[in-house]
Nucleic acid binder design. Structure first.
Ligand SMILES: [Mn+2]
Ligand SMILES: [Mn+2]
Ligand SMILES: [Zn+2]
Ligand SMILES: [Zn+2]
Lengths: 158, 158
DNA sequence: TACTAATTGAAAATGATTTTCAATTTCTTT
DNA sequence: AAAGAAATTGAAAATCATTTTCAATTAGTA
């Protein structure tokens, strides 16, 4: 498991003069296995008391490094905590966008229309990057609203 | 100036049992005149030493209230500060999406392809809200990258 | 004008993230 | 395999955005 990934990560790190370390390996491995939207705390506590205890500061630093190098995506659902997930290539089958509940923070991945979305994004991206001389690296499409659970809760209250 | 806006705001506030106050009026007026992407601090200092000094806490509270009521949009470009702008109707000519520079935080509004974008969003929204029983209230489309200025700076460094 | 509920704002509290710095680890070179 | 240079780690302290508290003030209503 993870051999190819490990090589990729190590290569990426070498390119920017960084080293592959135990904590970095463990954190990336954890993110690979849990394809979720994790906070720093989520990761810190999940790895606590495992074979190798990782400091909170190191979790922060590792995640930031991986974002800078395009391994991870960082995003914010409005609750003041950053969330991280593996960055999937725009054209991979794992690439997806988000539905976010503004009441409870639930995040739903979807890729039902991903081909159409990507097609339009590509076009917009091309025109805008030329027009504004802007190098586009990434995109976000996100719908915000109220999940079925929160809607139900709200009805009961009234 | 702003009569219609003021009435709309007052009406909105009444509906949720809130009052129209000097600070709220001033903050909304400021946001109307500066169609930008302002932080709490931006607004607090812009209004400091004006006719009516507004407390930082009140700025926070007013902005949050307006977001809850759909008057303002809140978003995050990854620098840890929330930003606010007037919420334009999905179909208004002022509705737009964003290009964000991840180096300097520059935000460019664009609506070059807004009709196509909206059309696709509507379709996706309809299907997803049915599939997941999710009430969609808002959407975000954002491109992240490096602006021409930051690209130039980076070249010079190398 | 008088009343009541909502609002304000200064100060303190909170909570996420960053900084500091001495000890440890990685990777390259012998 | 051992040494050395440079990068990394992590505990503690610092920072900084945002929230809470609470007594004084203000807006809307009767
Ligand atoms: Mn996701
Ligand atoms: Mn904008
Ligand atoms: Zn929810
Ligand atoms: Zn820039």
């Amino acid at each position: 498991m993870g051999c190819k990934k490990h090589l990729g990560w190590r290569g990426m790190l070498k390119k920017c003069g960084c080293k592959m370390t135990k904590p970095r390996e463990i954190i990336l491995e954890h993110l690979s296995k849990n394809c979720k939207h994790l906070t720093v705390e989520d990761i810190y506590f999940a790895l606590k008391n495992k074979s190798h205890d990782i400091g909170l500061t190191t979790v922060y630093r590792t995640l930031e490094l991986m974002v800078q190098n395009g391994i991870l995506n960082k995003f914010d659902i409005g609750d003041g905590k950053s969330r991280y997930e593996l960055a999937f290539e725009t054209n991979s089958k794992d690439h997806h966008h988000h539905l976010v509940c503004c009441k409870c923070g639930l995040i739903i991945n979807y890729n039902d229309f991903i081909d159409e979305e990507i097609q339009l994004l590509k076009k917009v991206e091309k025109e805008l990057s030329e027009k504004h001389n802007f190098k586009i690296l990434n995109h976000i499409i996100q719908f915000q609203g109220v999940c079925s659970n929160c809607a139900k809760k709200n009805e009961e209250t009234n």
